[in-house]
Design a protein around this nucleic acid. Structure first.
Lengths: 241, 241
DNA sequence: CGTTGACTTGAGTCTATTCAAATCCTGTGG
DNA sequence: CCACAGGATTTGAATAGACTCAAGTCAACG
């Protein structure tokens, strides 16, 4: 097996875990893998900028990317921060010719870039791809609408609490030890607050709920208490994760 | 022609203007029309509540609906306010068995309700429906992500200004006279602010940009000025409409 | 003409922000 | 192994924006 095919194999393995290729015939995944590029990048590297022509969409294998916009006055708005198994940029095949946000590596990362042209091609051919995208987008939409709700009704400590709940492991047993996945400044931006506010709000959480915070390691003595603190301000659905 | 078929005809006419049935064979639209119900409702009427089992999705023919959630503590969050030609509820066929928001008529309205089962049925059969939904959802997603951005970086007067720009007619010639489409209180809720804040922020806008406000009639002397006031705080894309 | 609901206004409070400064960490070079 | 630069984080003080509660105004409607 030469390098090229083993590389394709590896890419195919990764892509198979993506929502997009779920239930798809293997040969199609392989076709994508052949046209794809597996890349490695350091923190700070730019994948594309707002306004660039859409040519590729991306799949994260490892590390974190930040998706963001820049205001005319130079302020940055963080759209999302994604890690392994997440895809982004694929939606632009419907909406226009230019990315409407930029993507920057937030911590050393491995990713795969795929040509949007191939996606367009198969979208018309393979009904299953549409299904996969629809399912995913409807999920995304719910998450987004939840975020809007949160911005409206939760204060800073609650938004942080909500974030902590979301990154909790699935089996919850007290106390819960959590490693913050990236810079506090970046978390703050994702939650729509300033770093100073984040710092103070986290301190507030610590005081109110006896959290322990050591650098980026957070210990939650009782997730029930945290959920009550956070979710009472929220709409009638169980904790957001 | 008996009443039933003329009713079906009428419904079909309406549905044809919806994004969902774009480019679809006529017989499918007719099939939907046959299973649909054309309804009239007064302000305050509830179409469904958060948590209700999903059975129908809706198409607005006339008037306004408010989509909203309720927090545990009783506060209301407005998700969206839709009028003629907008569809809602159709996304739940992907995401679960219960509506995750409620729908209430905001001003006397005519609407059509359609069974989700039929949509599910044709979704598997007719590729074009998937396309239509994908296209629409990707658009919605962009609008939502824009809203998140706005909540983060615009202040109350700017959000109102942005809203005004969005309801401007397509051809802009100064001065622009606008009729606010529904209660100020409701606009406030949609923009994520309290009625009092809305009132003060509008007054601020009036002062800063020489708007004239008479009851629900707003006159904008210069949309260029308004756009500058609003959009400089925004990301590098032309005015949001 | 009085009632009702929508809207506005006033005063005080709270939350998050800004700006400035201090502190803590981390990786680097000596 | 230690000192140090540079970035991340925290803290302080002052400010600004939005909120609450309360009271007033306005227009529509019976």
């Amino acid at each position: 097996m030469n390098h090229s095919t083993s590389q394709t194999q590896r890419i195919k393995q990764h892509l198979s875990t993506s929502y997009l290729f779920k239930k798809l015939p293997e040969n199609i995944v392989i076709h994508f893998a052949e046209k794809a590029q597996l890349k490695h990048a350091d923190k700070g590297e730019i994948l594309f900028l707002q306004g660039d022509e859409v040519e590729w969409f991306y799949f994260m294998v490892d590390g974190w990317v930040k998706l963001f916009r820049q205001t005319v006055e130079g302020e940055e708005v963080v759209i999302d921060i994604l890690n392994a198994n997440n895809m982004f940029g694929e939606n632009f095949i419907f909406s226009g010719e230019n990315y409407n946000y930029g993507a920057e590596i937030a911590s050393e990362a491995t990713y795969i870039k795929l040509p949007t042209s191939l996606l367009k091609f198969y979208l018309a051919k393979e009904h299953q791809i549409s299904f996969n995208m629809l399912e995913n987008m409807s999920q995304q939409q719910q998450i987004q609408s939840r975020e809007i709700e949160h911005l409206n009704i939760q204060n800073a400590p609650q938004r942080i609490g909500c974030y902590l709940l979301k990154i909790c492991p699935h089996e919850l047993k007290n106390p819960i030890k959590l490693q913050l996945p990236y810079d506090k400044t970046l978390i703050a931006a994702k939650l729509g607050m300033k770093p100073e506010t984040f710092s103070r709000a986290l301190a507030r959480l610590k005081k109110d709920l006896s959290l322990t915070i050591d650098r980026s390691l957070v210990t939650i003595p009782s997730h029930e208490n945290l959920a009550e603190y956070v979710c009472n301000a929220c709409s009638q659905t169980i904790a957001c994760n």
